[in-house]
């Protein structure tokens, strides 16, 4: 970890310890959440999208300001069928939505994309998002995971140790259906996505744990392939999870409040009065621009485009 990041963590920890948590709602003014608003929004997410659930995490890491059984939210085994990096290339080539890199770097989506210079004769070849076949463009790379023996640790060569001695199974009686051996399965990763409450920034914070197609833990650099390239090296950091053991990739929350404030402003300018229990739906929609191919569940509960004044 970089030294400045370390110092900041220590500072943040101290501030979190000595400040009391927010009790007055600043949801519309600043785009932030109080602890109790986080719980309300979390309850609503769990009710509407039951693949999410509250968890209590490691007892030693429990935060006293949150209910013991509602420390953080998690959804496990979320499919990620394509790499964000490849999708972006294709999508941009198709003149789709792109991230507007404004001076504030908020990661807003432009709806009409960058005009492409050479658009003329390749119109028919434009890939659609649905039928995007990454494998046809580039061969699937051998994914190195923790399983791979090329790490500097000399893992005893157990993978070479083919068991023949004491397992006897007659294939004719085993009745195992064989999985279709196609690229889709090779490309499919799964993620555990968790949402914690960041007391310093007073916003939710998203954490990612990835698994490869054979359900082995993904190395952290490989997780970055599933993060929008505009964010991969900037806003995604590898840190200790506040409630779980080990280091996990996280989308740094320093700009979350500001972006949420903008989203809320846009809604209000359209005459939509956002309610605080919908916060996480808006938040997860915003997160989808950072991790576009991880198909976690968030349903839009109310129509973003609806207006009450016309």
């Amino acid at each position: 970890m970089v030294l400045s990041q370390k110092i900041h963590e220590a500072f943040k920890g101290t501030v979190e310890r000595i400040t009391s948590h927010r009790t007055v709602s600043a949801f519309k003014e600043k785009g932030v959440l109080s602890v109790s608003e986080f719980v309300i929004a979390g309850d609503n997410l769990v009710a509407k999208c039951p693949t999410w659930s509250w968890e209590s995490g490691e007892p030693s890491k429990r935060k006293p300001y949150l209910p013991a059984e509602k420390q953080f939210l998690i959804t496990r085994n979320v499919p990620c069928l394509r790499r964000a990096a490849s999708v972006e290339e294709e999508y941009e080539a198709a003149g789709g939505e792109v991230l507007l890199d404004d001076e504030e770097n908020d990661g807003w989506l432009a709806t009409h994309g960058k005009p492409k210079e050479t658009k003329s004769d390749e119109e028919e070849d434009l890939p659609s998002m649905e039928s995007l076949e990454i494998s046809k463009k580039e061969p699937i790379k051998q994914i190195s995971t923790y399983m791979g023996g090329e790490e500097e640790d000399d893992i005893p060569d157990m993978a070479e140790f083919e068991e023949t001695d004491n397992i006897v199974t007659d294939p004719s009686t085993y009745l195992v259906a064989h999985e279709p051996d196609d690229d889709n399965i090779l490309r499919t990763r799964t993620y555990d996505v968790s949402i914690t409450y960041d007391k310093y920034y007073q916003t939710p914070r998203v954490w990612l744990t990835g698994y490869d197609e054979s359900r082995m833990l993904l190395q952290q650099e490989l997780v970055l392939e599933d993060v929008s390239q505009d964010h991969a090296r900037k806003t995604v950091t590898i840190e200790d999870h506040p409630h779980l053991p080990g280091k996990h990739a996280s989308i740094h929350p320093c700009r979350h409040g500001a972006v949420m404030k903008k989203i809320i402003d846009v809604l209000m300018s359209r005459g939509v009065e956002p309610e605080v229990d919908k916060y996480l739906f808006l938040f997860l929609k915003f997160m989808a621009s950072v991790i576009p191919t991880i198909e976690y569940d968030y349903t839009m509960d109310f129509d973003l485009g609806s207006t009450s004044n016309n």
Binding site: Y146, M147, E151, D153, I155, M158, A159, F161, E162, E163, T164, I167, T169, T173, Y174, S214, M216, L217, P245, G246, K247
Partner: peptide, 23 residues
């Protein structure tokens, strides 16, 4: 009755291994 059920690792009858030295 007889029983079966050892999990295969990429189609082979081998154990899995994970290194967590990094964490």
């Amino acid at each position: 009755p007889n029983a079966v059920g050892w999990e295969l690792n990429k189609g082979r009858k081998v154990p899995r291994c994970i290194s967590l030295a990094q964490s």
